Amino acid sequence: MPGGGPEMDDYMETLKDEEDALWENVECNRHMLSRYINPAKLTPYLRQCKVIDEQDEDEVLNAPMLPSKINRAGRLLDILHTKGQRGYVVFLESLEFYYPELYKLVTGKEPTRRFSTIVVEEGHEGLTHFLMNEVIKLQQQMKAKDLQRCELLARLRQLEDEKKQMTLTRVELLTFQERYYKMKEERDSYNDELVKVKDDNYNLAMRYAQLSEEKNMAVMRSRDLQLEIDQLKHRLNKMEEECKLERNQSLKLKNDIENRPKKEQVLELERENEMLKTKNQELQSIIQAGKRSLPDSDKAILDILEHDRKEALEDRQELVNRIYNLQEEARQAEELRDKYLEEKEDLELKCSTLGKDCEMYKHRMNTVMLQLEEVERERDQAFHSRDEAQTQYSQCLIEKDKYRKQIRELEEKNDEMRIEMVRREACIVNLESKLRRLSKDSNNLDQSLPRNLPVTIISQDFGDASPRTNGQEADDSSTSEESPEDSKYFLPYHPPQRRMNLKGIQLQRAKS
């Protein structure tokens, strides 16, 4: 015994090295194993092979420090690593049964499904019991997946119906949107047309105001020219009257000059006056001389005659003075006559000038009245044309509004008919989907599995289990394997941990 101590140590070291070499393959693929292994699927088989106990299973599945599946799978690998070579062998058998691809990844061999460990530990009855539990578990999982698949199909059909409904609603909204954009385009076109009409109206108003201003300026210029013409006519008439007055005065002077006595007659009258003065002096001298030589009687007679002569001279002087006064009065009367005649001529000139001015103003008033009548006639014609244009424009607008209203009513009726057609199509689609759903539900009910399987069917299934373990590994792997896509769409199922009653199965096998 003492001599065998070193050999035992060498043997233990060799086993430990082999164990480390075995687990080295697992550690190399630890990331892939932790990512894809579900500990809840492996722990029943590991407990059946007595590699882990209930406490280890509870620690792996329910520990609060292991929230994710990767953490739980890593903890399970750590626990199996502590179990040595047996933990490695049982772990590979569980991978061979549940995850053939991972088994091939770790060992590089094809899975054979021999279950040597569980046969050694529990015997064939334990293997049968384990396989029966796994089959029931798989059936329950398949039923749950079928239910989930039916629910998802129903949800899918519902979503398809909602999608069709949303599509129809979208078509309806597109119809309304198209109608909205069309009405918006019509409104924009009408606004552009309105702005264009306003611009045209403004341009016409500006043109009309400009023409009116030009016409008023032309009328004012015409009036100024007419006033200048009238003033020139007035000056012409005044000059004609002055010329006529000057002509009359010149004719009067000419007549006075023609009626003036001649120079010879004046000289002859002056000679006669001198001769008479000479004779008068001679007679006076004779009379003076006679007075001195005459007697007293003759002197008395001469005195009487002288007195008579003096009286006659006085009378004559009075007559001469009277004649002079009369001549002066006649001259003054002639001057007054000439003055009055001049005033008369001036008044006649003024009267004729005023008459011509009156005629001029009368003509001017007639011209202004004619212009006013023409302006009123043009204004009435413009008003009439404007009223006709406004009436025609309003009539066109009324007809346009009428046609637009008819078009809008027809478009609304068309839209309502399209919407009604879309709604009826939606109703038809809904009815078809309901009919299809009812038909599929009836087919699913016919094809669904019963909840409680008979014992004979279970025994028959387990009677055929042994050949399947040898020759149909691919079928078992397809039913027991969970793909990543299934984990996305289906909830994980945790079967209840219970042991099955095998009395009925044993009785059935005894009868057979």
Results as ranks from 00 to 15, higher is better:
residue 43 T to I: 08
residue 129 H to R: 01
residue 144 A to C: 12
residue 6 P to A: 12
residue 142 M to H: 11
residue 103 Y to F: 08
residue 97 F to Y: 00
residue 40 A to M: 07
residue 34 S to P: 03
residue 73 A to E: 03
residue 75 R to V: 04
residue 33 L to P: 02
residue 138 L to C: 10
residue 144 A to N: 13
residue 48 Q to T: 10
residue 85 Q to R: 12
residue 83 K to I: 02
residue 39 P to V: 04
residue 30 R to F: 01
residue 86 R to M: 13
residue 41 K to W: 08
residue 105 L to P: 00
residue 12 M to C: 07
residue 120 V to M: 02
residue 63 A to K: 14
residue 137 K to S: 09
residue 61 L to E: 06
residue 32 M to R: 10
residue 135 V to S: 07
residue 67 P to Q: 12
residue 13 E to G: 12
residue 80 L to A: 03
residue 135 V to R: 08
residue 17 D to F: 11
residue 42 L to V: 12
residue 63 A to Q: 05
residue 21 A to Q: 02
residue 133 N to R: 00
residue 146 D to Y: 05
residue 142 M to G: 09
residue 26 V to D: 00
residue 117 T to G: 08
residue 90 V to W: 04
residue 139 Q to V: 08
residue 11 Y to F: 13
residue 12 M to I: 11
residue 64 P to M: 13
residue 97 F to I: 05
residue 132 M to L: 10
residue 12 M to V: 12
residue 95 L to R: 01
residue 126 G to Q: 15
residue 84 G to F: 07
residue 28 C to W: 05
residue 15 L to A: 11
residue 83 K to Q: 08
residue 113 R to W: 00
residue 112 T to I: 13
residue 110 E to V: 03
residue 61 L to H: 01
residue 67 P to S: 08
residue 43 T to Y: 00
residue 145 K to Q: 09
residue 125 E to R: 08
residue 78 D to K: 00
residue 36 Y to A: 13
residue 39 P to D: 02
residue 9 D to Y: 11
residue 10 D to Q: 10
residue 130 F to E: 13
residue 72 R to N: 03
residue 12 M to W: 04
residue 65 M to G: 01
residue 57 E to V: 10
residue 9 D to V: 11
residue 137 K to Q: 10
residue 142 M to V: 08
residue 5 G to K: 14
residue 93 E to G: 07
residue 145 K to N: 13
residue 141 Q to Y: 14
residue 38 N to T: 06
residue 31 H to V: 14
residue 70 I to Y: 08
residue 17 D to A: 13
residue 18 E to M: 07
residue 83 K to T: 10
residue 18 E to K: 13
residue 50 K to S: 11
residue 130 F to G: 14
residue 60 V to N: 01
residue 115 F to V: 15
residue 35 R to D: 06
residue 26 V to S: 00
residue 73 A to M: 04
residue 57 E to M: 04
residue 8 M to H: 12
residue 83 K to D: 03
residue 6 P to M: 10
residue 20 D to L: 11
residue 68 S to R: 02
residue 133 N to T: 12
residue 131 L to S: 08
residue 143 K to E: 11
residue 31 H to T: 07
residue 5 G to L: 12
residue 88 Y to W: 03
residue 109 K to R: 13
residue 55 Q to T: 13
residue 138 L to F: 10
residue 73 A to H: 02
residue 29 N to Y: 03
residue 71 N to T: 11
residue 94 S to T: 02
residue 70 I to C: 12
residue 112 T to R: 11
residue 72 R to V: 02
residue 137 K to M: 08
residue 116 S to V: 00
residue 38 N to Y: 06
residue 101 E to I: 00
residue 54 E to N: 09
residue 109 K to E: 00
residue 88 Y to F: 06
residue 142 M to F: 14
residue 107 T to C: 00
residue 129 H to V: 12
residue 74 G to C: 05
residue 47 R to S: 07
residue 35 R to Y: 06
residue 86 R to I: 09
residue 129 H to S: 13
residue 19 E to C: 08
residue 140 Q to E: 13
residue 131 L to R: 06
residue 36 Y to C: 14
residue 111 P to W: 00
residue 93 E to F: 00
residue 141 Q to K: 12
residue 38 N to D: 01
residue 78 D to Q: 01
residue 53 D to I: 09
residue 4 G to E: 13
residue 64 P to L: 05
residue 48 Q to M: 06
residue 43 T to A: 08
residue 79 I to S: 04
residue 72 R to G: 03
residue 81 H to Y: 09
residue 91 F to T: 15
residue 105 L to E: 09
residue 22 L to Q: 04
residue 8 M to K: 13
residue 34 S to V: 13
residue 124 H to I: 08
residue 134 E to Q: 12
residue 137 K to V: 05
residue 26 V to M: 03
residue 54 E to F: 10
residue 24 E to G: 06
residue 142 M to W: 11
residue 26 V to P: 06
residue 70 I to G: 01
residue 42 L to Y: 01
residue 45 Y to I: 08
residue 6 P to I: 12
residue 87 G to N: 00
residue 41 K to T: 11
residue 125 E to Q: 15
residue 136 I to E: 00
residue 55 Q to V: 10
residue 126 G to P: 13
residue 126 G to M: 15
residue 72 R to M: 02
residue 122 E to A: 05
residue 42 L to C: 04
residue 70 I to S: 05
residue 44 P to N: 05
residue 141 Q to I: 12
residue 128 T to M: 15
residue 33 L to W: 02
residue 85 Q to A: 00
residue 69 K to V: 05
residue 112 T to D: 15
residue 11 Y to H: 14
residue 47 R to Q: 06
residue 27 E to T: 02
residue 6 P to H: 07
residue 126 G to I: 14
residue 29 N to H: 07
residue 68 S to Y: 11
residue 124 H to C: 15
residue 29 N to G: 00
residue 55 Q to I: 13
residue 6 P to F: 12
residue 4 G to R: 13
residue 5 G to H: 09
residue 81 H to A: 06
residue 56 D to V: 04
residue 112 T to S: 12
residue 137 K to H: 06
residue 39 P to F: 01
residue 21 A to D: 06
residue 83 K to A: 10
residue 122 E to D: 15
residue 15 L to N: 09
residue 73 A to I: 03
residue 61 L to A: 00
residue 141 Q to D: 13
residue 11 Y to D: 04
residue 87 G to S: 03
residue 11 Y to M: 13
residue 17 D to N: 12
residue 26 V to T: 00
residue 145 K to A: 06
residue 49 C to D: 05
residue 27 E to P: 00
residue 96 E to N: 03
residue 23 W to F: 01
residue 110 E to P: 05
residue 69 K to P: 03
residue 25 N to P: 14
residue 145 K to S: 09
residue 130 F to I: 15
residue 80 L to V: 06
residue 51 V to G: 07
residue 12 M to S: 14
residue 5 G to C: 13
residue 39 P to N: 01
residue 103 Y to S: 00
residue 4 G to K: 10
residue 91 F to L: 12
residue 145 K to V: 07
residue 4 G to Y: 10
residue 91 F to V: 02
residue 96 E to W: 02
residue 144 A to K: 12
residue 81 H to E: 07
residue 143 K to A: 10
residue 39 P to S: 04
residue 101 E to Y: 00
residue 107 T to R: 00
residue 83 K to P: 02
residue 110 E to D: 04
residue 74 G to S: 03
residue 83 K to Y: 05
residue 11 Y to P: 15
residue 91 F to E: 03
residue 140 Q to V: 10
residue 146 D to P: 08
residue 70 I to T: 06
residue 53 D to C: 09
residue 37 I to W: 02
residue 139 Q to E: 09
residue 65 M to T: 09
residue 111 P to L: 03
residue 54 E to M: 13
residue 107 T to A: 04
residue 58 D to K: 12
residue 138 L to N: 10
residue 113 R to P: 03
residue 119 V to I: 02
residue 76 L to I: 02
residue 112 T to W: 01
residue 81 H to D: 03
residue 77 L to M: 10
residue 134 E to V: 13
residue 69 K to Y: 03
residue 30 R to E: 02
residue 58 D to Y: 15
residue 44 P to Y: 09
residue 125 E to V: 13
residue 138 L to A: 06
residue 80 L to S: 01
residue 71 N to M: 07
residue 57 E to D: 06
residue 143 K to V: 11
residue 135 V to Y: 01
residue 122 E to H: 06
residue 16 K to M: 14
residue 68 S to L: 11
residue 74 G to V: 12
residue 128 T to R: 05
residue 137 K to G: 09
residue 105 L to S: 00
residue 136 I to A: 14
residue 28 C to A: 09
residue 130 F to N: 13
residue 17 D to L: 08
residue 96 E to S: 02
residue 66 L to Q: 04
residue 27 E to F: 10
residue 33 L to G: 00
residue 134 E to S: 13
residue 61 L to I: 06
residue 40 A to S: 02
residue 54 E to A: 09
residue 77 L to N: 10
